[in-house]
Nucleic acid binder design. Structure first.
Lengths: 163, 163
DNA sequence: GATGATATTTCGATCCTTAAAATATCAAAA
DNA sequence: TTTTGATATTTTAAGGATCGAAATATCATC
């Protein structure tokens, strides 16, 4: 067995570093591929953008409605941003701002009946796109991916949180 | 053993569909977490945006330079977009447009010496961020993730390509 | 040469996004 | 009750990314 089979620690460290980078690039490529597909389909089939779809999906999960600030937190964007996206959805009649009975500074944003209908149709299509995008993976592979992503999420959250 | 242990095919299908959706949402959450972290660091530490960094990284992989159209293909964005990003990098002295000797319609975009220096510093830092973001995964987990992403990439590419 | 393809830029437009300032209201202390 | 600091939201100003289509220049071929 040749000596060089065992790399010195510096070589190994560098190789490991490069692996993390490749892993990230591959993950980014996958996500962009899927995300761009979804954006294009949302646009072409429903004439809506991803941020607007995301806001609606937050509201669907919270039928009692959410305050602007809560939306901002959940979507991890600034308040001004939520204002703009909400304005657009209000203009389209998909959500409403109701005055909060508890706090006159705040609004409670809710899906309208039409917004709910509209969202359900979109969500169904969205789920279908996912099924076809992931169709090349068998169940075991999908489970494995799901589990590994959980580990990654914890790992990355620790780092990203610091700031 | 109760009968209902084995779900009927419709129930199973719906459950599987929902799983694909959850898988995607988890993946998206992970990627956004990391991507936002990277964007913020690139901005704060190097005053550069992700698309500009990406363009430079394409050039670093092709020291002979790339035509605008090649950049456009590799970055999966339109030509007009590449023009804008390139203009900015030229203004900052990080890349140059050289006339193609073969084709007077075309430019060959290359990193300048300063661009190369600058990119290397950024890439090193970038790799370090990746190492820390993935630090919570052991080697086996990272390999597993890497492999599953390869499967996913193939699967999704098949669907996304059709259009 | 003429003509259809190709490489790039320009133009017009839409969106997302942020940070900071402005507004209104709340809640608690004085 | 008045003041005061915190909170919820909007407004404003600015910067980019991004696209699609039209415009320009050049190529390559008939």
């Amino acid at each position: 067995m040749p000596k060089n089979t065992i790399p010195d620690s510096e070589t190994r460290a560098t190789a490991e570093h490069a692996k993390d980078l490749r892993l990230w690039l591959r993950m980014l490529a996958c996500t962009n591929l899927i995300e761009n597909h979804v954006r294009a389909k949302l646009r072409s089939d429903f004439d809506i953008t991803l941020p607007r779809f995301d806001l609606m999906s937050q509201l669907e999960r919270s039928p009692q409605g959410l305050k602007m600030g809560e939306l901002s937190k959940r979507m991890m964007v600034t308040g001004g941003n939520v204002t703009g996206i909400t304005d657009q959805l209000v203009r389209e009649g998909l959500v409403v701002r109701e005055d909060s009975p508890k706090d006159r500074r705040a609004y409670i944003v809710k899906l309208t009946a039409e917004g709910r209908r509209s969202f359900r149709r979109m969500a169904e299509a969205h789920e279908g796109w996912m099924v076809s995008l992931f169709a090349g993976m068998d169940e075991k592979q999908r489970d494995e991916l799901y589990d590994m992503l959980a580990v990654l999420k914890n790992s990355a959250a620790k780092v990203a949180a610091k700031r």
